Simulated scan of single mutants.
Amino acid sequence: MGSDFAPVARALSARGYDLAIERHGGRPHVRAGGATILWQHVDDPAERARALEGGAHDVVGPWMHEAETVARIVRLAQASGPRLCIGDLQIHLVDRSVTRGGRTVALLAREYALLLHLARHAGQVVSRTDLLRAVWRLDFDPGTNSVEVHMSRLRGKIDRGFARPMLRTVKRCGYMLDGAERHG
């Protein structure tokens, strides 16, 4: 892509976006979520029109202000990015944001990692040992209550203000993210 993309890449990385830079037909593309954005080294309106007609979601380049380039990529990544949906909970995998019932849920990195692991196993009980291995990268129990403290904080952020809790503790087994509606 060249060094002219480096400031944009740094700005996006600082915001937590994971980007893939690919070449298609000899031209560099940025993949952000499900969006394909052509990186055009020189402002060429005819080439930009061809790229958009050919399926690119947008065209950006060093001829744009860096803030505009970042804003365009972020907008497309958020709109088209992959996400996990469990009930009314949405976990956006590109920008690592979380919403429940349309409300933004601010999470710390470890809380996000816990939620993501539980979401990938939604409806299943995940043991404390599994969480230590997956989130803390520990193959032993350090004998602290760190998992319980983080789960309590996460439960407060995810379930507070909602009629039905999603994070459940299953006694002597572990934790479960439960998106199923209960009637009865």
Rank of each mutant, 00 (worst) to 15 (best):
L19Y: 07
R23F: 13
A11N: 06
I37Q: 02
P7S: 11
I21H: 08
R50N: 08
A20F: 10
A49T: 13
T36M: 08
P45S: 01
Q40P: 11
L38H: 01
G26N: 02
A14G: 05
R31F: 08
A6Y: 14
D18R: 00
I21K: 02
Y17R: 00
T36I: 08
A32N: 07
A9M: 04
E53T: 10
R50M: 03
V8R: 01
I37A: 02
A6G: 14
A32I: 12
A20H: 13
W39P: 15
R23T: 15
R50A: 06
L19A: 06
A9F: 04
L12D: 00
D44M: 03
P45V: 00
A35L: 05
D44H: 05
G34P: 07
L38G: 03
L12N: 00
G25V: 03
G26H: 04
A6R: 14
E53A: 10
R31C: 10
Y17C: 01
A14V: 06
G25N: 05
R10E: 15
A35N: 07
P45E: 03
F5I: 08
P7M: 09
S13K: 09
P45H: 01
A20Y: 11
A11E: 12
A51W: 04
G26P: 07
E53D: 12
R31K: 09
V8G: 02
T36V: 12
H24C: 14
D43G: 03
A14E: 10
V42T: 14
R50H: 07
R15V: 12
R31M: 08
D18Q: 07
A32W: 08
P7C: 11
L52W: 12
D44G: 03
A6V: 14
T36W: 11
R31L: 09
R15S: 12
R23P: 11
P7V: 13
A11G: 06
G33T: 06
L19V: 13
V30M: 05
E47P: 10
A32Y: 09
G25L: 03
L19W: 07
R27G: 11
E47G: 08
S13C: 07
F5S: 08
L38K: 04
Q40M: 05
L52Q: 12
R50S: 06
A46Y: 09
V42E: 12
W39A: 13
D18V: 13
A11H: 05
G25I: 02
D44L: 01
P7F: 09
